[in-house]
Each structure stands twice: as structure tokens, then as C-alpha cells.
Amino acid sequence: MRVLVALGCLVLGAAVGLGTVALHGYGWGLGLGIAATAASLVALPGGWWRRLPFALGWTAALGVASVPRPEGDYLIASDASGYLLLATGAAVLGAGFVGLVPRGAPRGNAEG
């Protein structure tokens, strides 16, 4: 069952990432893509089977889109929105790995 959940999160991340890459040239599209990505990362619980596969799918879609096209140009432009998209990819990957750290109860002092 965990493998199916991980596969679903991977596909969901790739779909959200692809949509964000496709619409990043428009201001509203980049904002909507970042908002959808952030909402998904917050909604998914951390762990190997949920948030990390989503983040890996998202960054895989970004990685595939950043390869030069046969015409010699790039799908991600070298402007502010393109750099913000690439920075978002780094933040998404970081959030996926941060979700692996177990969150415990905060420790108080020894005096109680």
C-alpha cells in the first residue's frame, strides 16, 4: 500500500511541477503554481512515502523541462520568473527532505 501512495504522490508532484513550468511565464501562473506546490507540501505529511516522492516528482519535472530543446532554446527563460522557478525547485526539494526529520515533542528544561 505504501508503494501505491508513494507512486501517487510522485505522479501528483510531477503534474503540479509540469503545470508550474508550463505557466511560469505568466505572473499569475507562477504564483498559482507556487501556491499549489506550497499547499501540497503543507498538506502532505512528512516521510519517505508521501512528501518526499511529491518533491522528487516536482523537481524531476523541472529537471526534464530545463534541458535544452532541439531548437537550441530553453523552456525556462533566463529572466526573473525563470530564476524564481528554479529557486522554488530547490526549496521544494529541501522541503521534501526536511519532512524526513521526525518531529517530537519539544523538550523542556530538567526542572520541569
Rank of each mutant, 00 (worst) to 15 (best):
L93P: 01
L23H: 11
G72S: 11
L10C: 10
P102A: 14
G17H: 13
A65S: 15
G96C: 00
I76T: 05
E71Q: 14
V67H: 05
G57L: 08
A77R: 08
L85P: 00
N109S: 13
T88L: 14
A91T: 08
A65Y: 14
L62M: 04
L86F: 04
A14R: 13
L10M: 08
G13D: 03
G31T: 13
L56Y: 02
H24S: 03
P70Q: 11
I76G: 07
A65D: 12
R103D: 07
A61D: 03
L84Y: 05
L44K: 00
G72N: 15
A39V: 11
G112W: 12
S40P: 07
A39L: 15
T37M: 09
L18S: 13
L4A: 00
S66G: 01
P45C: 05
Y26N: 10
R103M: 06
Y26D: 11
L10H: 09
A36V: 08
V98Q: 08
L7A: 14
L56G: 04
A91L: 14
G63A: 04
N109A: 13
C9V: 05
V5W: 01
L44P: 10
H24P: 03
L100S: 08
R51Y: 10
R107L: 04
V64A: 12
A110L: 15
G33T: 08
L52V: 11
G17F: 11
G72I: 15
L85A: 01
S66E: 04
T20G: 07
A80R: 12
L75R: 08
G33H: 08
P53L: 00
A39N: 05
N109M: 15
P68K: 12
R103T: 10
V64W: 04
A38C: 03
V21G: 05
V16K: 13
A15H: 10
G63M: 00
Y83F: 13
P102R: 12
A61F: 03
R2S: 07
R69E: 13
F54K: 01
V42Q: 11
